[in-house]
Nucleic acid binder design. Sequence first.
DNA 1: ATTGAATTTTAGGCATGACTAATATAACAC
DNA 2: GTGTTATATTAGTCATGCCTAAAATTCAAT
Lengths: 222, 222
Amino acid sequence: MEKPRLSESQEDYLKEIFKLREMNETVSMQDLARKLDVRPPSVTGMIKKLCAMNLVEHEPYKGVQLTETGEKIALEVLRHHRLLELYLARHLNYSWDEIHEEAERLEHVISEKFEAAIADLMDHPTHDPHGDPIPTADLEIPDSPSLAPLPSLKGTRSIVIGRVMTQDRDILSLLFRLELTPGQEIELIKNEAAGIRVRINGSQYLVPHSIARLIWCENTET
Amino acid sequence: MEKPRLSESQEDYLKEIFKLREMNETVSMQDLARKLDVRPPSVTGMIKKLCAMNLVEHEPYKGVQLTETGEKIALEVLRHHRLLELYLARHLNYSWDEIHEEAERLEHVISEKFEAAIADLMDHPTHDPHGDPIPTADLEIPDSPSLAPLPSLKGTRSIVIGRVMTQDRDILSLLFRLELTPGQEIELIKNEAAGIRVRINGSQYLVPHSIARLIWCENTET
DNA sequence: ATTGAATTTTAGGCATGACTAATATAACAC
DNA sequence: GTGTTATATTAGTCATGCCTAAAATTCAAT
């Protein structure tokens, strides 16, 4: 199956379908419209085109799915995005909350050469600064530790943050200041009504549930 | 005067007008059409829009000129382009003939933050790998040594290459192999019918006139 | 089964930035 | 000056990718 040249819009649709599919069983037109910040009729129209290109399959009123070719393209865009995020953070001194926006624009524009160059420079990393897995050069998703959202974890114990499920700049910069970043070891203290009490590098915080559910941790059973 | 958000196309028009203006006294619609790889009616249309935005001035059948605001934007794009070229060469191991194409796409997409980051990293360079001056952060053109095209230089003497006036990949990679790059010192031997005979690092070459006129050298009078 | 709400699609429009074909203007040679 | 050639403009199309308003379909609740 051929890989046609796509517009940035089309790449964004495929990427978003992929990401939604990771979370939900089925991807609705409305989900897509919300994520892409576009009205539903625009989604219908674009999905029709992507169908005609054999990049997605669409059961009307049911849901959308990527074809194999569509998924490859989505993974390519995702690889660009995540490599770029890591690159911006590591080599251009971007802060955690700035990388997403810049990568969002660059991902559509860099060449294979650029992708390979930064991947080499960073020794072919497997995860970006948010803990999201970076698809490999041959577009496989690397193994990740099995993760669970912070609020689902019980008991008093030490755990390691694996992934932070938001791109919201305000939340990210808050999490960064609290040192709630991937790789960080935290101590689970108590599950309270208002949130989850944890200790990080000696300091205690109460993490509200709304934020705690964005933090996924390595699920080391006690 | 406001700086409106421009499309990539519009940025390209402004950039190209600026570059043509450096060479020729006047910039015609046809010149632009050729450089932008577009038909003349498209240029007429776009120039009208840029006029309405107060970015260019246009005397019909005479020529196009940038306004002050238009020139600032052109310089900004040019700064992006040339910083990117240097960055790709220095930090991502791009070869001389690969940098232009990639910079051409990235220049429209990088943020001020990105621009500042790579400028810092490279210690605020004044010239790109082709010897083209990089506009400063406040959009002034840095002083360059006064240059003259190789074929215009007489006598037998040593000169330094200052700038190479092409973006053609084949010519660039040829020049690179011959070490005819900015900063290189070459020894002028003889002006022959077929070209110009020079010595570079001990080896003699005959540089055809078609290529020699792309090579501009520091004009140190003898 | 039927109504009502939510979701999706159709129909029709708009801006952008290209294009072709045809026309108008300028510039130059004689 | 007239005619020829260059150049530039106008007029009208087209593809993209978005929009709103209205109609169709599905799903769930009674």
